[in-house]
Simulated scan of single mutants.
Amino acid sequence: MIIKEKKIHFWNGNKSATRRNYEKQLLTLCLQEAGITDADIIVDECDYPVAEDEGNVFSNGCDLLVSVAGNQKFSGKPTTIIEIPVCRGVLGHRLLVIPQKQAEYFANINNIHQLQQMTIGIPATWADADLFRHNGFTVSEKGSLDDLFMRLLDREFDYIALGANEIESIFEQFNGEKKGLLLEPTILIYYSLPLVFYIHPHRQDLVSIIKSGLTTAIANGKHESLFEEHHPDLINRLALRTRTAFRLTNPYLPSQLKNFRPKL
């Protein structure tokens, strides 16, 4: 395969450190599996707290990025989406962070209306905010991931929902347990939220390269190995199959991914 320009500007901001590391290594793997060994990947981890700014990253030199399929910030933008999920749907498995004092109350939740009647805290610009609102939840969308835990402690809202692939590292990073917070052990909120590559319309060379490399890595098992390296024993460690599960709908999925099912 032929790459038009060896420099590849990869925007990798507005996400947790866990996702940044995985998605950066995934891009390298895709290039390698497509036979591209001399690319110069320039990683931009700048965060954009304003949704409009994130939606305009392709106007600021970005060649490609990874985001959730159907991200409304890119709706109508001239981008090419490779509709092959890159993280097996794990981001749509949302687990809760709650105040420790509320552990008994959450452990007795048995219907979705109880969660809808409370308020969920979500950082500004996160795609989840519109999705939760669509499903009848009360949402406090404000600030950044960095201040989310302090806002929960200040009781601005009742709980946080984070992806199973990142919740442990984020909780540890912000010393959640020491601050009186808890990784709630009984509830799972699930919605289809596949992560996919978005590519600048002027870098069509990358479309065929990334698609070929990702397809090859999935077929030969290297994609699964990378996933397991970053998310070891995820299902058992977080008891994903034994929690009380509440399923939400995602109206923003592109038509090709309407029937997406996670592969965990």
Rank of each mutant, 00 (worst) to 15 (best):
G70H: 05
Y105W: 14
K101A: 15
I98W: 09
L91T: 10
P78G: 06
S67V: 01
V66M: 09
V68G: 06
V86L: 15
S67C: 02
E104V: 15
C87E: 14
F58Y: 13
G92N: 09
V86M: 10
V66D: 00
L64I: 11
L64C: 15
Y105S: 07
D63A: 05
L91E: 10
P78W: 06
V68H: 03
K77Q: 10
C87N: 14
Q102S: 14
N56D: 15
T79P: 00
T80S: 07
T79Q: 09
G70I: 00
Y105M: 14
D63F: 08
V90Y: 08
I82P: 05
Q72H: 11
I84P: 00
T79Y: 11
I82F: 05
N56P: 01
G55V: 12
R88A: 11
V90N: 03
E83G: 03
A69M: 04
S67Q: 03
K77M: 06
V86D: 06
S59D: 14
T79E: 05
Y105G: 00
V57P: 04
G76F: 11
G76I: 12
P85N: 10
A69D: 01
Q72E: 08
P85D: 10
V66H: 01
T80R: 15
D63R: 07
I82S: 05
K101R: 13
E83Q: 10
I98C: 06
S59I: 00
N60S: 14
V90C: 08
L65V: 04
G55I: 12
N60T: 12
P85A: 12
G89Q: 11
V90L: 11
S59R: 04
Q102T: 13
R94E: 09
L96R: 07
Q72Y: 13
P85S: 10
C62T: 15
F106V: 11
L95V: 08
K73N: 02
I84Q: 13
P99F: 07
E104Y: 06
N60I: 11
N60V: 07
G92F: 02
G55K: 09
H93I: 00
I84K: 15
G76N: 06
L65Q: 04
E104P: 00
N71F: 09
L96C: 07
A69R: 03
K101M: 12
P85C: 11
T80E: 12
I84E: 11
S67F: 03
G70P: 02
P99R: 15
S59M: 04
L95R: 11
I82R: 08
E104R: 14
I84W: 08
G70C: 03
N56Q: 15
V97K: 05
S67M: 04
S67D: 05
V97P: 04
L95K: 11
V66E: 00
L95W: 12
Q100L: 14
V90M: 12
N60Q: 15
P85V: 07
N71T: 02
G92A: 07
V90P: 05
C87S: 13
T79N: 09
K101I: 13
